[in-house]
Amino acid sequence: MNTPQFDLSAMLTQQTAVQQIPCEMLHPYHNHKFELYTGERLEDMVASIKENGVLSPIIVQPDGDGYEILIGHNRWNASKLAGLPSVPAIIKAGLTEDEAEMYVIESNVMQRGFENLRISEQAAAVALRHNEMFSQGKRNDILRELELLENPNAEVEESTLTPVGSKLDSGKTVGAEYGVSKGSVIRLIRINKLIDRLKALVDSGDIAIRTGVELSFLSEDTQAIVAECAEEDKIEFKIAKMLRASAESDGYIDRDTVHSIIYGDDSEQTPKPKSVKISNYTYTKYFAEGTKPKEITETIEKALEFYFKNNS
């Protein structure tokens, strides 16, 4: 059975007519995982758009009364800041959810470079690439279109794209595409299974990648409980392993169990005794040289008992 392929010529003619769409009719992709430009980079884009307009059209798909942005979130945002009433756009109708996701992720990797993405963004790209739901031919067609949209005069070399029929679902092959090891691919796929609150903590460095991998084996409900704790106290790798082991053993761990593992069970902990030093002056005043420690302790206990008994 042959896998249906995109008709690239049709995509570049029938569905690529550029239209001006009002900014207020556009909204971000519902599953957008990528950080928008800020600071100097955003300011430069706004300045460029004010002077030259939007040179490359964004790509959108119909969504209710408006359009959902697939490619060009930063151009749309900068256009609004620049005061433009509308932006040039190419409307893609009839895309499947998988195809729309491919447009969003592949365009971000192409434009920004894999190494410049946040950990959670890299995880999203690798997980999508690793998933067998995409045929290689479909991905090739999308990559060709993106290349042509970025540079209409460029000739996309077939040799740079993997032949149709090649199976690219192994960690080794995907890692080679993005310049990371097979182990990194596996870890990133696990990071993609974290809830957004935990992904944000991985991106900020508050949760280490290896710790995030362990937490990814927890249910989303349990991850939400962990996230509440992690936003206040750092979750170490050892704690994450204990949480995973408990979840795999019991099938489910409740809030009390999570708190017990993270903070410790007070009912099972014995407070560590504090030591008190006696000054040399006090020692020589009340104890003869050579007095054994046991005798000193007994004398102090008797003195304290007498003191509190008569002063209570």
Score class of each variant (00 low, 15 high):
residue 119 I to P: 14
residue 120 S to Q: 04
residue 120 S to W: 02
residue 121 E to C: 05
residue 122 Q to R: 15
residue 123 A to R: 02
residue 124 A to K: 06
residue 125 A to R: 04
residue 129 R to M: 10
residue 129 R to I: 00
residue 129 R to L: 08
residue 130 H to W: 10
residue 130 H to R: 13
residue 132 E to T: 12
residue 136 Q to E: 10
residue 136 Q to I: 01
residue 136 Q to W: 00
residue 136 Q to S: 11
residue 137 G to W: 03
residue 138 K to R: 13
residue 139 R to C: 08
residue 139 R to N: 02
residue 141 D to H: 06
residue 141 D to F: 04
residue 142 I to R: 11
residue 142 I to W: 03
residue 142 I to T: 12
residue 143 L to I: 10
residue 143 L to F: 07
residue 143 L to W: 07
residue 144 R to K: 15
residue 144 R to M: 11
residue 144 R to W: 01
residue 146 L to Q: 14
residue 146 L to T: 04
residue 146 L to P: 01
residue 147 E to L: 11
residue 147 E to D: 14
residue 147 E to A: 15
residue 147 E to I: 04
residue 148 L to Q: 09
residue 149 L to Y: 14
residue 151 N to S: 14
residue 151 N to R: 15
residue 152 P to A: 09
residue 155 E to V: 13
residue 155 E to N: 09
residue 157 E to K: 14
residue 159 S to F: 12
residue 163 P to R: 09
residue 164 V to H: 07
residue 171 G to Q: 02
residue 171 G to I: 02
residue 172 K to S: 07
residue 173 T to E: 07
residue 173 T to R: 14
residue 174 V to I: 15
residue 174 V to R: 01
residue 174 V to N: 01
residue 176 A to L: 13
residue 178 Y to V: 01
residue 179 G to C: 02
residue 189 I to D: 04
residue 190 R to W: 09
residue 191 I to L: 08
residue 191 I to Q: 01
residue 191 I to A: 02
residue 192 N to D: 11
residue 193 K to Q: 15
residue 195 I to V: 07
residue 195 I to R: 10
residue 196 D to F: 01
residue 197 R to S: 10
residue 201 L to K: 12
residue 201 L to V: 06
residue 202 V to M: 10
residue 203 D to E: 07
residue 207 I to M: 14
residue 209 I to M: 11
residue 209 I to D: 02
residue 210 R to I: 07
residue 214 E to C: 11
residue 215 L to Y: 11
residue 218 L to A: 03
residue 219 S to W: 10
residue 224 A to I: 00
residue 226 V to A: 13
residue 226 V to Y: 09
residue 226 V to W: 10
residue 227 A to S: 15
residue 228 E to P: 00
residue 229 C to H: 14
residue 230 A to H: 01
residue 231 E to L: 08
residue 233 D to K: 15
residue 234 K to H: 07
